[in-house]
Write a protein that binds this DNA or RNA. Sequence first.
DNA 1: TATTCAAATACAATCGATTGTATTTTGTTA
DNA 2: TAACAAAATACAATCGATTGTATTTGAATA
Lengths: 339, 339
Amino acid sequence: MNNKPTIHDIAKALGIDSSTVSRALNDSPRVTKSTKAKILAKAQELGYRRNMLASNLRKNVTNTIGVVVPRISRHFFSSAIQGIEETAYLAGYNVIICQSLEQFEREKKIIEGLVANRVDGLLVSVSMETLNYNHLEVAKKSNIPLVFFDRHCNLPGYSSVLIDDFKGGFDATEHLIIKGCRNIVHFSGPQELEIYKNRFNGYKAALEKHKIPFKKELVITSRLMEQDGYSNMQNVLDSKQTVDGVFSANDVAAIGAMKYIKEQQIKIPDEIAIVGFSNEPISTVIEPSLTTIDQSGLEIGKIATRLLLEYIVKKEIPDKGQTITLATSLIERNSSKKT
Amino acid sequence: MNNKPTIHDIAKALGIDSSTVSRALNDSPRVTKSTKAKILAKAQELGYRRNMLASNLRKNVTNTIGVVVPRISRHFFSSAIQGIEETAYLAGYNVIICQSLEQFEREKKIIEGLVANRVDGLLVSVSMETLNYNHLEVAKKSNIPLVFFDRHCNLPGYSSVLIDDFKGGFDATEHLIIKGCRNIVHFSGPQELEIYKNRFNGYKAALEKHKIPFKKELVITSRLMEQDGYSNMQNVLDSKQTVDGVFSANDVAAIGAMKYIKEQQIKIPDEIAIVGFSNEPISTVIEPSLTTIDQSGLEIGKIATRLLLEYIVKKEIPDKGQTITLATSLIERNSSKKT
DNA sequence: TATTCAAATACAATCGATTGTATTTTGTTA
DNA sequence: TAACAAAATACAATCGATTGTATTTGAATA
């Protein structure tokens, strides 16, 4: 009772060979229907469960995809995970979800662990601290295909599924300009991450298009937590800059900024209009509701998984990766609804 | 290049036996320092990574804990996961996170998968659809210890780490009563789940203590999504009931209700006061901010993991489980701040 | 009934690491 | 230097399932 039954226990109980049991449990045509029935009944009776460790070791496949995201609690990532799971399960794959919590060391350990556990593929959205890519090369050396989604590394030989951050940043900024803003603060994230660089470039391009001079003192870089948005806003207002608009590279920091602005009795959007990025559910709850850039996590997850599964099935990692870019859309709400 | 190096490759390259390599890589005292150094260097050179499948199969241990939650995007669960991960990593265990999305079938498949992959233990918070516990018994039959957290099943032989839902429900309701409410609606969840039953019982007990007659038409059961809160509120107001308070068994439904109430230009808290449950971050963002019951996900995760690790280390599943109940606290915010 | 061939099943190696036991090597002592 | 204990290493079985090959079984045909 203590030890879990194996195919050998079933074989012994029926006086047959374990290979036949294995084939029966895998519904092989090499076993006759009647013995299959006997084996299945005995398996049921003994409460047999296949030991996937042994099976995977022998088959050198795990039917498992490892997913690494910065934080599962972010709506964007949890919907990406949902897209990943849906697609993976349909293809018969399991998914292991891991969060780096934006820490490089954790990310590194996680990837080493997933590689040691021989996942068949990896879907990665890197942390804000990831400047060095050796831990990712480990996967490649182990012949494990890796697809980036959303937050990628600019490395040759990897595929990525991204959203059009440049366009998103551009649209957000231009929206504020059209609403009449001329002094637009931008909250950006670590510039090592392509997504923040691109959103920032979109911001600059929109200013340029509308002949508004770029002022670097209006760009504040942080890790974009709620507290960062709050204190960034405080700093920029304390510095006596003229500010009539804020484009934050994520919603969470935008909400932090709004909390500070509201405390100061400054009117949103009339005195300062605000646009966020990601369309977190919280952006519909805050008052005024937050204008933001929508990015479909579900879709990015599905597409990235499909791409990864292609590589897994073909058993080959392409020499140069492909990049798929998904469109974003601006969702106008009250935080920018100037007349 | 195609195949990953094994201990045998290292052994062959150095002209020694693979058992020595294995011992060296595990830092066994049975291997001399100089050979250890040679082996480590060669392992490094070949890019060796231990195959955990083989190792785990042989050792009959995976150093992995499986976690099943309804939804990773809920703040309470993502902080519980953080507590679980912290505790587990310190003890040298990995964590596999899975979400049932409140679906029984998914939960069943997930648990079967985790059992087949021979996790060393399970931490489970059941879905709203879980009425039947056979899939959980499977774990016990496989000698895998299982600890419930937050949402448990009333099964003998399992340990649980819970919060004091009765007290939480009682406090929430009494708080509304003290604020002067006499017609308090309660949004409850599926009664099969102990947590909702207990919150409901707390609600009834508070009414009773204050001699307010219980009216069953003021209790509405749903799955407590935001949309449910919205339509529950609509229904109860349309039915022309007198309502001056709402105690929702979670924050998300409370927020749905608030959206409807605000649309109807009814004043919160003066005409209707509201209390939620869970202290989701969103409850500080909505206006008025939501009074709620705080439950520490981090703590519940840590304690449940410690308990599970005890069972894993002792290699025994106790005949009768223990139940640990954590205190809750009411956080008063503006949605109930009547004068 | 003997022969043949296909279907069903058994045998045995294998996946990669671990570990108890056996053997060899090393260093120490007489 | 021979003898011996201790240290270092080699041998071989094992974890549980899979799978190519070999053998047996059984049915059909001559």
